[in-house]
């Protein structure tokens, strides 16, 4: 297949997976588009450099946002596999130099997967006074895939990192999330994870935030629905190490049918001026909420659906 056909097919599948493709063509957006292990398109904008190379079955990508650059439009990353089987290995290094600011939207989609592996190792470095809003969304088709995003993130002094991870549509398969963050002085890290388990999905989420710097702040929020025969295990670690560091862990897991959920919050405070709170709620959908929606004329099933959709929004 020639390059153009492959790109067309890719965009087609991307749209069928529920995404809007306009931005993939616009030169205003920096982008990296990968099918299987091949770079289909790469676009840089001023102040954003994207370097890739392929070695030993792994695609290495290095994205740098130059000092002081505030990227106007979101940087788009697409990692797709259109084949039923593939072993996609990606190694991403993302560097925000001092004072850089960007938003990044990352779509991972494997619409035809029967046995797709997607292993993503990431290393994100936010130097001082930088800001990154990172959104990652997954779609693994009807059969699910085996997906492991493992990312280490360093949030520098006065820097701000917010990430949202969403896997809400389709069957997930096996998901193994592992995020480790170190947050420097006055740095902020907020992680929001929203996952909907169906069929026999197996979901493992490990998120660790080390509030190392003085006055650093962190939020770990997970919202999980485990329906049918899916299983979900969430481990959230928040450590208050720096003076006056503040952290909050907030986990809500809902089960329906034969879903199984567990939550292990680990909150550690090793500094007497640090303060960490956590709340967790596991079980069926809140009855009072269901009742209230039923008083508006919804059936129980409809009410539950609206509540879960809201939680995972």
């Amino acid at each position: 297949m020639n390059y153009e056909d492959e790109f067309k097919q890719f965009v087609n599948a991307y749209e069928k997976s529920g995404y809007v493709s306009n931005n993939l063509f616009s030169p205003k957006y920096a982008k990296l588009i990968v099918n299987e292990s091949k770079v289909l398109s790469k676009g840089e904008v001023e102040g954003v450099s994207i370097k890739t190379r392929f070695k030993n079955g792994t695609l290495y990508a290095k994205i740098t946002i130059k000092k002081g650059v505030k990227v106007k439009y979101p940087i788009h990353m697409c990692f797709g596999v259109l084949k039923e089987k593939w072993n996609q290995k990606i190694h991403t290094t993302l560097i925000l130099e001092e004072g850089a600011e960007a938003k990044m939207i990352s779509h991972c989609f494997f619409p035809n997967s029967k046995n797709v592996f997607h292993i993503m190792k990431g290393n994100f470095i936010l130097k001082n006074n930088s800001k990154l809003i990172y959104e990652e969304e997954h779609f693994h088709g009807k059969n699910g895939a085996i997906v492991k995003p493992h990312v280490k993130i360093k949030v520098g002094k006065n820097s701000f990192y917010v990430s949202t991870f969403k896997a809400k549509r389709g069957v997930i398969g096996k998901l193994d999330i592992n995020y480790k963050l170190d947050v420097g002085e006055k740095g902020v890290a907020e992680l929001y994870t929203k996952v909907f388990g169906r069929k026999k999905d197996k979901i493992k989420i490990y998120e660790e935030v080390n509030l190392k710097g003085n006055n650093s702040r962190g939020i770990l929020q997970s919202r999980v629905a485990a329906t049918e025969n899916s299983q979900c295990n969430v481990k959230s670690v928040m450590r208050g190490l720096g003076n006056y560091s503040r952290g909050h862990v907030d986990c809500t897991e809902i089960i329906e049918e034969n879903g199984v959920v567990s939550a292990i919050p680990i909150v550690e405070v090793k500094n007497k001026t640090a303060h960490i709170t956590h709340e967790a709620s596991l079980g069926r959908v809140n009855k009072k909420q269901v009742d209230t929606l039923m008083t508006k004329g919804l059936t129980e099933e409809e009410a539950v659906e609206i509540i879960i959709r809201g939680l995972l929004r």
Partner: peptide
């Protein structure tokens, strides 16, 4: 019904 203490809803 207008309930005495209606619940809040996340994401709605």
């Amino acid at each position: 019904i207008l309930q005495q203490n209606p619940p809040s809803f996340e994401g709605i």
